[in-house]
Computed example of a mutant assay.
Amino acid sequence: MPTLRDIMTPDPVTVDPMATLKEVATLMLEQDIGSVLVVENDRPTGIITDRDIVIRAVAYGHDFGTPVTDYTTGDVFTMDANASIEDAAREMAERQLHRIPVTENGRVVGMISLGDLANRTVGGMDQEALEGISVPTDQ
């Protein structure tokens, strides 16, 4: 049975907690990505997306020299590299996630996204995840 290791993007782009918004935005531009993991001692402590930068910083006119940790989403949900693709699709749907860092022994080894489910699987797993992500939450 295929696992996350089979479809993940290996070696995701990461920064340390003291990276600035400008540094992260520049990485996103150079790497053509929409999210960056914040890691400390090879363990994820946060994640920031291009949308986070726009909504949480740019919209309020904040300084781009500010540490990225002021704008990250903490409590990063991760999954083990040996987890099943079906479990990842279910977790994405239930938690309304677009991406999940993949770990091995607690260390980040990859990233799986909704796009990975769409492009690298067969059987509509991306549809299951997308339907869950698209459901409004009771916030």
Rank of each mutant, 00 (worst) to 15 (best):
D80L: 00
L97H: 07
V38N: 03
A19Q: 04
D16G: 14
D80Q: 05
K22N: 10
M1Y: 13
P12C: 06
R99D: 03
E86A: 14
M111V: 05
L29P: 00
V36E: 00
R120A: 07
D70A: 10
R90E: 12
R107E: 15
V102N: 00
V102K: 01
Q127E: 13
A129H: 07
T45F: 01
P67K: 09
P10Y: 09
A118Q: 09
E30D: 15
G106H: 07
L130R: 13
L114K: 09
R95Q: 13
A57H: 08
V108P: 07
T72G: 00
V68P: 00
E94Q: 15
F77K: 01
Y71I: 08
I133K: 07
A25N: 09
A19D: 04
H62T: 09
M79C: 03
H98S: 12
V68E: 07
I53E: 02
D52K: 03
T20L: 08
I53H: 04
L29Q: 15
M111A: 07
A129K: 04
S113Y: 03
N82C: 02
A93E: 07
M18G: 07
G123K: 10
R51K: 12
A129Q: 03
A81P: 04
I55N: 06
V39T: 15
P101C: 04
S84L: 09
P101S: 05
P67N: 08
I7E: 11
E104H: 10
G106S: 09
G61F: 11
D11N: 13
M125V: 09
T72E: 01
G61C: 12
T78F: 01
A89L: 11
V68N: 06
T9N: 11
M1L: 14
I112T: 15
V102R: 00
S84Y: 07
S113V: 06
N41R: 12
E40Y: 06
D126F: 06
N82M: 12
P10K: 08
S84D: 15
D6F: 04
V38C: 10
D6Q: 12
E128P: 00
Q139G: 15
L4K: 10
